[in-house]
Design a protein around this nucleic acid. Structure first.
Lengths: 233, 233
DNA sequence: ATTTTTTAAAATTTTGAAATTTTCTGGAAT
DNA sequence: ATTCCAGAAAATTTCAAAATTTTAAAAAAT
């Protein structure tokens, strides 16, 4: 066991990262008495951190029964996807309307970085620390896409939802990298930079639909909403 | 001081209610050592509850500096309103598409109840326990409006946002009941029951816009999004 | 053999106090 | 008069152990 002492924020960061990268298996019990030894602090400190993670949905808390890493649940992934798509479509649409040159530049930059990493993964596969690097770059990409929406609550809600989505997704029994991802990201940036809000909404839906129940065949989401005639190009 | 003992969930419910009905003034310090005596438990139990309320945005936590009821902030109210309108418009649109007869019936029922309370308020004014009764009925109305959207995360996010909105709104220096509210609620139900998604979006925006910066004059929100041509009646 | 009861072990929750940090107060120096 | 510093007071955070509850195991009864 480690003898190093961790501060409360460090413990939170570490557990959070482990949960969203599936280093803690789904359903595993999280005993404060045990984690106390790991992080060199008292059980109460752990308890505080676990409560916070529970309020963010990554951990399940049951009264008198302690904490567990949230188990995988196809239905949950479906609904997380549905909500995430809505937030991302709205955030992207607003960003496309309000984003300045700086937004375009940053979006272009983070996509370039992500594309580079994804090329590497397609060749070498997803091993070891690559998952964490890719995870971070993907989050940065999607967050930048909606970053000009001028709605801090939309952004924080998206972040929360994204983390829960990632936890569910990565914990899937046979999780692997989809090479189509790269093209889908490409399609999203292109539509965004072309200021094509409707096209961007469709691209976002196309990127996410495989995570919906039945792969999104049954018209679960309304991507049909057309741009208003006056703004059409 | 009370000698009764409260369970942890009771303490949470009580503090939550006091915060969203402005019985705890904005910015007030919440000392666990003091609340311990009020609720007849230990300081750590209070601490846990306050952390939870902080993660929901009703309470502010600063490291080594304790907890405070969140102060009023016009900018915060603006952004809360903006996000709330988005969630409610999306939720209502989806409900209008998917809601069955049972949804219509329930919406009609809760609106009837709300309208009754609002008639009384217009006559007798907002005093004492009326605020809490109205608060509850208003939440029930807006929640029912979006209840058929088939998106649990949208609903819980709305609830969270609504609570924060109410806290900000009620704590305003000169808070009072707007008689226009009744008509605005009316307009929302009518559009919803007529299955007029676009009209409902507009009605929701009209209901909320006085809480936006500048009263919503500068086209802050996109209510212009038209219903798709194929679905128009 | 299965179910129920009793007993023991393990884990969670609560507690009261120690340790740390911040805030307040009064006096000295500029 | 204002600023700066030291010491005291107050509040917050951390801790380790007691009390409660759940889980597991063994014994008794159906």
């Amino acid at each position: 066991m480690l003898k190093t002492k961790f501060s409360t924020p460090q413990i939170y960061e570490d557990l959070h990262l482990q949960l969203v990268t599936a280093q803690i298996p789904q359903g595993q019990k999280l005993r404060s008495e045990h984690l106390r030894d790991v992080y060199g602090c008292s059980a109460n400190t752990i308890r505080e951190v676990l409560f916070r993670l529970a309020s963010e949905g990554l951990v399940i808390f049951e009264d008198q029964r302690g904490f567990r890493a949230r188990p995988t649940d196809p239905e949950r992934l479906h609904y997380l996807t549905k909500f995430r798509v809505m937030l991302e479509q709205e955030g992207a649409t607003a960003s496309i309307e309000k984003g300045e040159l700086a937004w375009e530049a940053q979006l272009s930059a983070v996509h370039h970085k992500l594309a580079h990493i994804e090329r590497k993964i397609t060749q070498d596969g997803l091993e070891g620390p690559t998952l964490r690097i890719w995870s971070l770059a993907e989050l940065e990409f999607h967050d930048t896409l909606i970053s000009a929406c001028d709605s801090p609550f939309l952004r924080s809600s998206f972040r929360r939802t994204y983390d829960q989505f990632r936890q569910q997704k990565i914990m899937q029994p046979k999780y692997g990298y989809h090479p189509e991802n790269a093209h889908e990201h490409q399609a999203i940036v292109e539509a965004a930079l072309a200021r094509d809000a409707y096209g961007c909404r469709v691209a976002i839906y196309e990127h996410m639909k495989r995570n919906l129940r039945d792969g999104g065949v049954s018209g679960e989401l309304d991507t049909s909403r057309q741009p208003s005639k006056t703004k059409q190009r």
